[in-house]
Design a protein around this nucleic acid. Structure first.
Length: 539
RNA sequence: GCCCCGCUAGCUCAGUGGAUAGAGCAUCUGUCUUCUAAACAGAGGGUCUGAGGUUCGAAUCCUCAGCGGGGCACCA
């Protein structure tokens, strides 16, 4: 990967200037102005103090001595900056080296990690806010898998908590033709679930409430999980495991965690309940076992930590949560630490909410717009593209009217169209020319719009690395857009001047341009795959 | 009151402490006898919420303030 190579060359050149101690961050990054080249570093400015020399002079000496392997890029000093520009020959050669899966690097070295995402209470259909979590989590998994991590994708199914009990009670009430209890679930689907339960659980109505409620609840939860599974599959989201809370209780891990924390002084008894907190500080204490003997969700989460970090041995766990759970982050971190688990192994990604312009969502009232409805309206590809386009820190204001009327102006088509065009032109070449030379002479790729495509390809590994290390998939659609722009220009050059078409009479030239098409198409496909968006061959 | 996120072009948003702050949409002007016009070329549009501070250098880091959203349960 070139960025890393240049960074190393830069450091070596700085050593050559006689700097032995720690070298400050030389700020090697993408040059923002085309005149400055492709990568730029403020090395001269950074070292001015250490070397007690003018920045321009330092940059000059670095530019003269720096050795970029393979002659990949040329260095020039401008002011205190050292700028690097790709050499055409290197860009041409790169085109050959782009194969399917280009950009993958073994960053993870086989690290076993779990990504737990989308785990909403199975008490109703997924709405558009949940859609953000599942697509974000799924793309994080795809990135990690692409970069040498061993990923397990998990959905934690709450089944025994207050919310799911309320849900079960609501279905039970409907089963008997009654209104759901106070604070229960009132959606139409609850009535449907009651009808299904009546059919699938013969005699359920005759049982006492005490006997019937758990059966009805588990039945309804299973039905909801089934529905959630079907919904996420529509947006290409896959899970390895659906981990049920009741399995956790059966394992005894929550009790084991509590016992351990009691020994460390993190579990305290007060007002008839068990609390978790710092041994000598009551301020942030949270209830683990209620005064009535019932455990809270926090008790199960303690066990869940042990399940993953100890019993199943994940080196790292990534959790994707909606931002309304942010207050829970410090508690989970301190719980992990108290259990003897290095808290940095627990990575929590928060994403902001998804709002509708028309008004607030309310799950209980059943007025929400479901993820299924959204997919029906705009299609899976657009759903994923739009969710992933935003940084997790930004609230999405979903304009349903606009989303529903989207056509040409939809950015997902821009990227897909580039892929389809490339596929089409390759097919056209086969039709028109039949057999082409086996190998391409990439040195024939010398037009600026051709080299620009290659230049974009050169940046792809950087994007993959940054997105992986920062767990920020939104970098991918922005890259896809840049690459698609280069592709469209490359293609379009042939619209105004026939000799610049990809398929021309000159077989050697055609072959070279097809090689560029192939490289760009593979990279577009790879990037779209990471987003879970399809790469059509025809549109 | 405390905690989290945001505030960048008319709108929606990018932007690892670096040079002249970008994109899409919207608006306006051009380009199909064509390998796909779902495209391309171009134009206009900015007090990066405000005030201090750190730094050779701040949209970016720190402090304070404002506005918007979210959270502060023996719910999850």
């Amino acid at each position: 990967m070139l960025r890393e190579t240049i960074q190393a060359a830069l450091v070596e050149a700085v050593r050559g200037l006689g700097v032995d101690g720690e070298i400050p961050d030389l700020e090697l990054g993408r040059a923002k102005v085309p005149d400055h080249g492709d990568y730029a570093s403020s090395a001269g400015l950074k070292l001015a103090r250490v070397l007690r020399q003018p920045p321009g002079q330092i940059a000059q000496r670095i530019a003269e001595s720096v050795h970029v392997p393979d002659g990949a890029a040329a260095a020039t000093a401008v002011g205190g900056y050292v700028n690097f520009r790709f050499r055409d020959e290197w860009l041409q050669g790169l085109v050959h080296r782009v194969i399917p899966g280009y950009g993958a690097r073994d960053i993870g070295r086989g690290e076993r990690l779990q990504v737990e995402f989308g785990s909403v209470n199975p008490t109703g259909p997924l709405h558009i806010g949940h859609g953000r979590g599942v697509t974000l989590g799924d793309s994080i998994c795809r990135l990690l898998e692409f970069t040498g991590h061993k990923v397990q994708r998990e959905y934690y199914v709450n089944s025994d908590n207050t919310q799911t009990r309320r849900f079960g009670a609501s279905v039970y009430a409907r089963l008997h033709g009654q209104e759901p209890p106070e604070g229960g679930y009132t959606g139409e689907y609850v009535i449907e679930l009651a009808d299904m339960a009546r059919h699938d659980l013969p005699g359920i109505e005759k049982l006492s409430e005490e006997e019937a409620e758990p059966k009805v609840r588990m039945y309804a939860i299973d039905k909801m999980v089934e529905q959630i599974r079907a919904t996420v599959a529509r947006v290409n989201v896959r899970y390895d495991d659906w981990y049920y809370e009741n399995k956790l209780w059966d394992s005894g891990l929550p009790q084991k965690a509590i016992d351990r924390l009691r020994a460390t002084g993190n579990i305290k008894e007060r007002e008839g309940a068990l609390w978790f907190g710092e041994p000598d500080d009551e301020d942030d204490d949270r209830v683990v076992i209620r005064a009535n003997g019932q455990p809270t969700y926090f008790a199960s989460d303690l066990g869940y930590l042990l399940s993953r970090f100890e019993q199943r041995g994940f080196q790292r766990v990534v959790e994707v949560w909606a931002a309304d759970h942010h207050g829970y982050v410090p508690r989970m971190k301190s719980a992990a630490a108290a259990l003897g688990i290095d808290a940095t192994r627990l990575v929590i990604i928060l994403h902001q909410m998804v709002n509708l312009k028309e008004g607030k969502m309310s799950k209980r009232a059943g007025r929400f717009v479901t993820l299924d409805e959204l997919i029906d309206r705009v299609g899976s590809d657009a759903v994923r593209y739009f969710y992933l386009l935003r940084s997790p820190d930004t609230t999405i204001e979903f304009d349903l009217e606009l989303a529903a009327t989207q056509g040409n102006e939809n950015p997902v088509y821009y990227a897909q169209y580039a892929h389809a065009r490339l596929s089409n032109v390759e097919a056209t070449a086969r039709e028109r020319h039949g057999a082409l030379p086996e190998t391409a002479d990439v040195s024939l790729l010398e037009q600026p719009w051709e080299l620009e495509v290659a230049r974009q390809l050169a940046f792809w590994p950087d994007v993959v690395e940054d997105a992986t290390l920062l767990l920020e998939p939104h970098r991918i659609p922005y890259y896809v857009h840049d690459l698609a722009t280069a592709v469209h220009r490359f293609y379009h050059a042939g619209n105004s001047q026939a000799e610049h078409r990809i398929v021309v009479d000159d077989l050697e030239l055609t072959r070279a341009r097809l090689e560029l098409c192939r490289a760009a198409r593979h990279t577009l496909k790879t990037a779209l795959d990471l987003m879970g968006v399809s790469a059509p061959e025809r549109m």
